[in-house]
Amino acid sequence: MESLSQKFEKLKTLLREMDRVAIAFSAGVDSTFLAKVAHDTLGDNMVAYTVQAGMVPEREIAFSREFCKLHGIPQQLIEVDEMQVEGFAENSRERCYFCKHNLFSKITERAKAAGFSTVCEGSNADDIHDYRPGMRALQELGIRSPLLECGLTKADIRELSHQLDLPTWDKPSFACLASRIPYGEPISREKLSMISNAEQLLFELGFKQFRVRLHGNLARIEVLPEDFNKVLEKRDQILAAFKKIGFTYISLDLQGFRSGSLNETLATKQV
């Protein structure tokens, strides 16, 4: 079994072999680590592309800009109207495939026009264990996943990020806001905005790992079990804010936060 240092060296060697690399940079734990290592390894032979869309909270875009500016990483923003992506608003179980195919087609087009022949993204070795139809789109478009290719797990990436003193080493996991809406329930800009505003409130209240799942006019709050009491302490503030946002009913999921919880229905329900 390869050691962590061996995996890290393997990653840097792989990036050097790619020569000129474009990184899809979402400001999450994985892509932040990949962008930093790519820049440290390749210098000006790399660029970070960040998608700006309604399914991405503004705080994530702001963080990406600040990080790139601080570390001298060249960054380009790509504005996308996800509601115009065929198959996105219908929200079938293949939504992520349609969305990823569209987004990475745009990134690839922009990258190649700028002379970057290889586009990379931040999937890691743990991501193969969940339902991720977007991975098929990446394979079809020839997008590379260096972290996965080098066998780096989420825990590995957090540890190496800590060693590199990256602020994301303990950043909670995040996924696009569309993943908060059950498959089969249509997506709209209004729904994405409601989810974004609700999660921003939880962020401002000091919660770190959370999701607000939308079920019609009901908000289902997922936080870590150890934060249940904090939700109850902030109950009145949360209720007032969520009602103002537009939710009629607000619930706390007693199972607590779990990534991809809406995929739990896939084994029993076909959409």
Rank of each mutant, 00 (worst) to 15 (best):
T265S: 15
K100W: 00
I73M: 08
R93Y: 07
A113S: 15
T265K: 11
G43P: 10
E66T: 13
A111Y: 08
E109I: 09
E79Q: 11
D40P: 03
I157R: 01
Q209W: 00
P146W: 00
S117V: 10
F104H: 11
L103M: 11
A48N: 08
K208C: 03
S3W: 01
K12L: 08
N45S: 15
R144T: 02
L11Q: 00
K234R: 09
T118G: 04
Y49N: 10
M1Q: 07
A38N: 01
S64M: 13
E149K: 03
S193K: 14
S173Y: 08
L4D: 03
M55H: 09
L239W: 10
C120A: 04
D126T: 05
L192A: 12
R16K: 15
R95T: 06
P167A: 05
S3F: 07
E121P: 00
I143V: 06
R258C: 13
P167W: 02
F33K: 03
E199I: 14
L252E: 08
L11F: 01
S64Y: 03
S261D: 07
V21K: 07
A155N: 10
I128K: 13
D236I: 02
F203D: 04
A53L: 04
Q139A: 15
P167L: 03
D30C: 04
S64R: 10
G122N: 03
T268P: 08
L224Q: 09
R144Y: 02
L152V: 08
K208F: 01
R20G: 13
S259W: 05
I107R: 08
S123R: 02
D126I: 05
E233K: 10
I107V: 15
L214Q: 12
A22Y: 04
E140V: 10
R220N: 05
E159P: 04
E199M: 12
L138P: 09
Q255W: 08
E2R: 09
I195S: 01
D40T: 04
L138I: 09
L205P: 13
L160G: 00
Q270N: 06
L147K: 03
L34I: 06
E60G: 01
I157Q: 01
C68G: 03
V212N: 05
F242P: 00
F174A: 15
F257Y: 15
P172Q: 08
F25W: 03
G184V: 14
I78F: 06
F242L: 06
L138Y: 07
V29D: 01
E82I: 10
E199C: 15
L232D: 00
L218N: 11
F116H: 05
F228S: 05
R180K: 13
R158K: 10
I23E: 04
I143E: 01
I187L: 13
L262M: 13
D44Y: 09
T13K: 13
I78S: 04
